[in-house]
Computed example of a mutant assay.
Amino acid sequence: MKTNWTLTIDCADPAVVARFWCTALGYTEADPPSGWDTWEDWLTALNVPEDEWNDGASISDPDGILPSISFLKVPEPRTVKNRLHLDLQAAGGRAEPQHLREERIRAKAETLLTAGATLIREVPMENSTTLDHLWLQDPEGNDFCVV
């Protein structure tokens, strides 16, 4: 039997990280629970103190196809390289001409750098100087690649 799932990213500021990933993935803020016009209305009805409203965030694929992603506030900072990361597939695949692949990778990365990402390293193809992908981090240092 299939198990439904979402991806959860631990972070210090869920709202900031969620906004970044909306830009990166073309996602939108998740809708509030059914019957509520806004998240604020829902949180108020549940008597959640306002200083806890940024303890979590959720984003979703506007087409409803891809998994949702949640962001959970945690007290500890990230201390080691992620063992799991997202690859944003911007290039169109290895069948595309290399100059076009690189142009697409760099264009996507530029958008993300403007949104708060940090470039860690340009990664060449094995035994080559030709760009394979870019290794970046989101505003809180979570690793991802643009390929």
Rank of each mutant, 00 (worst) to 15 (best):
T111Q: 15
P67R: 01
I105G: 00
I105S: 01
E52A: 06
V48M: 07
I59P: 09
D87K: 03
V48I: 13
H85F: 12
H85T: 03
L66A: 14
N54V: 05
R94Q: 15
H85D: 10
R104L: 03
G56T: 11
R106I: 05
A91I: 00
A57P: 00
T111N: 14
K108F: 03
V80F: 07
A45M: 09
V80C: 13
D51L: 06
R78T: 13
T79V: 12
T114M: 11
T111A: 13
E76L: 09
G64E: 10
R101F: 00
K81A: 14
L86K: 01
L43G: 03
A57V: 03
A109K: 02
G93C: 08
P67N: 03
V80A: 15
E52C: 04
Q89Y: 00
L84A: 13
V48D: 01
L86M: 12
G64C: 06
A45E: 15
I65Y: 09
N54D: 12
L88P: 01
I59Q: 11
I69P: 06
E96K: 10
L66R: 13
E76R: 07
V48R: 07
R78I: 15
D55F: 13
I59N: 14
I59H: 11
I69D: 00
L86H: 04
A45R: 04
N47L: 08
K73L: 09
A57C: 05
Q98V: 08
I59T: 08
R101T: 00
T114K: 15
D87C: 04
G64S: 04
S70I: 09
Q89L: 15
I69S: 06
N54H: 09
L46E: 14
S60C: 14
P75Q: 07
A90D: 02
S70M: 15
V80I: 10
R101W: 00
Q89C: 10
A57R: 04
P49H: 02
S60Y: 03
N54F: 07
S70W: 14
R104D: 03
H99N: 09
P77E: 11
V74L: 12
N47V: 05
L72T: 05
E50Y: 07
R94S: 12
S58E: 15
P67S: 05
S68W: 07
G93P: 04
D87W: 06
I69Q: 08
A45T: 05
L46K: 11
I65W: 06
P62T: 07
H99A: 14
K81H: 13
E50T: 07
R83H: 10
T111G: 15
F71W: 03
E103R: 04
T114C: 12
P49T: 05
E103G: 01
H85P: 04
P67K: 00
L72R: 03
A91L: 02
W53S: 03
R83M: 13
E110T: 03
S60K: 12
P97T: 04
H85M: 11
L46A: 15
A95E: 14
A57G: 10
N47Q: 12
K73N: 06
A95D: 14
I59M: 10
P77T: 06
S70F: 13
L66P: 02
N47C: 11
S60D: 15
P75M: 11
K73T: 01
